[in-house]
């Protein structure tokens, strides 16, 4: 029987295996992992016992139901618009000459990073009541009322500003999977361009595009800054979103509001977990042939 390793030695081995990563792991546990646990506990725990009481109360409120429906709808709409515009754009950019591609990558990068309050204001300056485009159209003598800045339509237009670039940046690497000689081999086999896309191009890319759609959907539901900025000028008439509901309860009354915020946070958490797992599955599926 080998002699037992003394505790002290084992502790030192342990330290040498983990020590350099320990500070990061502490930070992550403190700022990311523990908060999730706290939220889940708060949502399912009332007066020291597990309970669904909060859920019934929060989900029973019309405003919260409204927020959940609007958020999901906005997520689906935004991700779909992004997919339709972003997929061809990503494909074409991936096949551009280096200099042209660099230009578009630069532009997309800037746009993708330009979110939050700054984007909300830019939207107001473009399509708000006194926005540039609004004024331009009116100067042409056309009667034009821009969509209310906090309406779903306005949110959609503002969100696309970062969603399309994000989607393109996300899917461009996948585009390189389609190889030039597949297209050549398809031509030699007498396939038309349409047949190539239908039988080879799209089947190969589809899981990647679906994964992109899913991420955009998830991120869109989680957007807060842009929505907060755009909701700013319309007070009570703003579109209700899950994130805004959370923010409002936090801003207004921390004591009574935490229950609602916790429940809505757990709703977002559930969406995030489901979409992350589906995302992994999709990518595994995408890689199946490669």
């Amino acid at each position: 029987m080998p002699p037992r390793t003394p505790l002290r030695v084992r502790a030192r081995q342990m330290a040498s295996r983990w020590a350099p990563a320990a500070p990061l792991m502490l930070l992550v546990s403190y700022c990311l992992i523990a908060p999730i646990i706290v939220l889940v506990l708060q949502a399912f725990w009332v007066n020291g016992a597990p309970s669904l009481e909060l859920w019934g109360r929060v989900l029973g409120q019309a405003s919260n139901q409204d927020a959940i429906v609007t958020s999901l709808g906005l997520g689906i709409a935004s991700a779909t618009v992004t997919l339709v515009i972003g997929s061809p754009a990503a494909w074409l950019i991936s096949r551009m000459f280096a200099s042209q591609r660099a230009f578009w990558m630069g532009l997309l990068n800037v746009a993708a990073n330009f979110g939050g309050i700054g984007l909300a204001f830019s939207y107001l300056a473009t399509l708000g009541v006194v926005g540039m485009v609004t004024l331009m159209i009116q100067a042409l003598g056309i009667h034009f009322d821009p969509p209310r800045s906090s309406s779903v339509a306005a949110l959609l237009m503002a969100y696309e500003y970062t969603n399309i670039p994000l989607f393109v940046l996300l899917t461009i690497p996948a585009m390189s999977i389609l190889r030039e000689d597949w297209w050549e081999a398809a031509q030699v086999a007498s396939a038309t361009r349409l047949q190539f896309w239908r039988r080879i191009g799209l089947p190969v890319l589809a899981p990647f595009l679906a994964a992109g759609w899913l991420l955009i959907f998830t991120w869109t539901i989680g957007i807060y800054g842009i929505a907060y900025g755009l909701a700013g000028q319309s007070g009570g008439t703003a579109a209700r979103l899950i994130t805004l509901q959370i923010g409002t309860t936090l801003q207004s009354d921390v004591i009574t509001g935490t229950g609602q915020a916790a429940v809505l946070s757990v709703v977002l958490l559930a969406i995030a977990v489901v979409s992350l797992l589906s995302y992994r599955r999709l990518l595994r599926r995408a890689m199946r042939w490669l």
Binding site: R179, D181, E184, A185, A186, V188, A189, S190, A191, R199
Partner: peptide, 17 residues
Amino acid sequence: RERPIGMVFQSYALFPN
């Protein structure tokens, strides 16, 4: 696509799906 040819590529170019 209209030429009466068959071609074998260096990298095979088999359709992965």
